[in-house]
Amino acid sequence: MPIFEAHNISMRLPDGRWLFEEINIQLERGDVLALRGPSGVGKTTLLKCLAELIPYNEGYSVLHGKKPAEYGIPEWRSRVMYVPQRPATHPGCPMDLFKAVKKFSSQKHKAKLGNPITIGMNWELSESHFYEKWSNLSGGEMQRCSLAIAIALAPDILLLDEPTSALDPQAVSLVEKTLKGKTCIWITHDPQQEQRVATRTLKMTRQRAPTPLDSDEESQGIQEQDDRPISITMDV
């Protein structure tokens, strides 16, 4: 039985055009849905919609048969957790962030949290990385620390925006091994990674040639230059 479902999720841009329309997703426990598509097609925006981080126009999601409003939005976001490709630079160190977030009331329902340091040490990080200021970490170190924190917070669903884009092949392999068995929606531009990790695939394809106005920053107002919605195909 699916533990997560998204029904007819649709996002309209400010000028009235559709960024994407009628996206349907079903995830069983342990599924990894690879989300593929060209830059500017709305992949990052879709993840943020599923996490209830930004509003969308139509559709709804359910987790264990309950809608976001039944959990409350803070708890929903703790259960359906978005992990950005480029982590924000937070004050202090990664462990400061983890210790702060695990005290949030939205985390109280979780019986047991993990240890991000233990997770990170499996990815060629040391304990000292988690006590280093965020601003002193490299892009790959920040990416791994952020992902380790997300996993340690034990969400039901991980929404991963290119989680290994800043990593070398050895670190990529180690992260993929840890994520095996987690329930994820995973944006990747790497067909070989898709083959390694995905149990199913959602392909978002534009119905026109890209233009110079296209950008990865869909959520910052860059608009599609076509009245038609993107087409959606899902391979199981």
Results as ranks from 00 to 15, higher is better:
residue 127 E to S: 14
residue 157 I to P: 02
residue 35 L to F: 12
residue 118 T to N: 09
residue 58 E to A: 13
residue 111 A to W: 02
residue 35 L to T: 01
residue 151 I to D: 00
residue 76 W to Q: 12
residue 75 E to L: 15
residue 147 L to H: 01
residue 40 G to C: 05
residue 98 F to K: 05
residue 121 M to P: 03
residue 37 G to T: 01
residue 86 R to I: 14
residue 35 L to M: 09
residue 49 C to Q: 04
residue 149 I to K: 00
residue 120 G to S: 11
residue 57 N to T: 09
residue 98 F to T: 03
residue 45 T to E: 01
residue 35 L to A: 10
residue 87 P to Q: 06
residue 114 G to N: 05
residue 57 N to G: 14
residue 116 P to C: 15
residue 81 M to N: 03
residue 160 L to S: 05
residue 113 L to K: 12
residue 157 I to Y: 08
residue 126 S to F: 12
residue 81 M to G: 03
residue 147 L to V: 09
residue 147 L to T: 02
residue 119 I to A: 06
residue 146 S to D: 01
residue 122 N to P: 02
residue 74 P to C: 14
residue 143 Q to I: 01
residue 44 T to M: 06
residue 111 A to G: 15
residue 49 C to S: 15
residue 109 H to A: 15
residue 52 E to T: 11
residue 52 E to C: 15
residue 156 D to E: 15
residue 147 L to K: 08
residue 44 T to H: 00
residue 119 I to G: 04
residue 83 V to F: 01
residue 105 S to T: 07
residue 129 H to M: 15
residue 89 T to V: 13
residue 113 L to N: 06
residue 101 V to E: 08
residue 139 G to D: 05
residue 82 Y to Q: 02
residue 95 M to Q: 10
residue 139 G to Y: 06
residue 119 I to H: 01
residue 109 H to Y: 12
residue 91 P to W: 06
residue 45 T to D: 03
residue 131 Y to I: 08
residue 99 K to V: 04
residue 140 G to A: 05
residue 58 E to C: 11
residue 150 A to F: 00
residue 136 N to A: 12
residue 74 P to N: 11
residue 62 V to M: 14
residue 53 L to I: 13
residue 122 N to V: 08
residue 124 E to H: 13
residue 48 K to S: 01
residue 151 I to R: 00
residue 105 S to I: 04
residue 121 M to S: 09
residue 155 P to C: 06
residue 101 V to T: 11
residue 85 Q to W: 08
residue 137 L to Y: 06
residue 51 A to Q: 04
residue 58 E to P: 05
residue 160 L to E: 00
residue 70 E to Q: 15
residue 145 C to D: 02
residue 119 I to D: 04
residue 83 V to Q: 05
residue 139 G to E: 03
residue 71 Y to G: 14
residue 146 S to V: 00
residue 86 R to F: 11
residue 158 L to C: 12
residue 45 T to M: 14
residue 49 C to G: 10
residue 86 R to N: 12
residue 155 P to G: 14
residue 95 M to S: 11
residue 142 M to W: 04
residue 108 K to C: 06
residue 143 Q to T: 06
residue 73 I to K: 12
residue 112 K to P: 01
residue 124 E to R: 13
residue 137 L to D: 03
residue 55 P to W: 07
residue 107 Q to M: 15
residue 65 G to W: 10
residue 52 E to K: 13
residue 149 I to W: 00
residue 119 I to S: 00
residue 128 S to A: 14
residue 131 Y to M: 08
residue 69 A to K: 13
residue 92 G to I: 00
residue 117 I to R: 07
residue 43 K to R: 10
residue 46 L to C: 13
residue 153 L to A: 14
residue 73 I to C: 12
residue 111 A to V: 09
residue 48 K to P: 02
residue 59 G to K: 09
residue 160 L to Y: 00
residue 123 W to R: 01
residue 63 L to H: 06
residue 137 L to A: 06
residue 130 F to V: 08
residue 45 T to I: 04
residue 111 A to D: 10
residue 102 K to R: 15
residue 53 L to C: 08
residue 42 G to Q: 00
residue 108 K to P: 03
residue 152 A to T: 03
residue 148 A to K: 04
residue 128 S to F: 09
residue 77 R to T: 00
residue 98 F to N: 03
residue 89 T to G: 10
residue 52 E to P: 11
residue 116 P to V: 04
residue 51 A to L: 07
residue 155 P to L: 12
residue 145 C to W: 00
residue 101 V to Q: 11
residue 136 N to F: 11
residue 132 E to H: 13
residue 152 A to Y: 05
residue 107 Q to T: 07
residue 64 H to G: 15
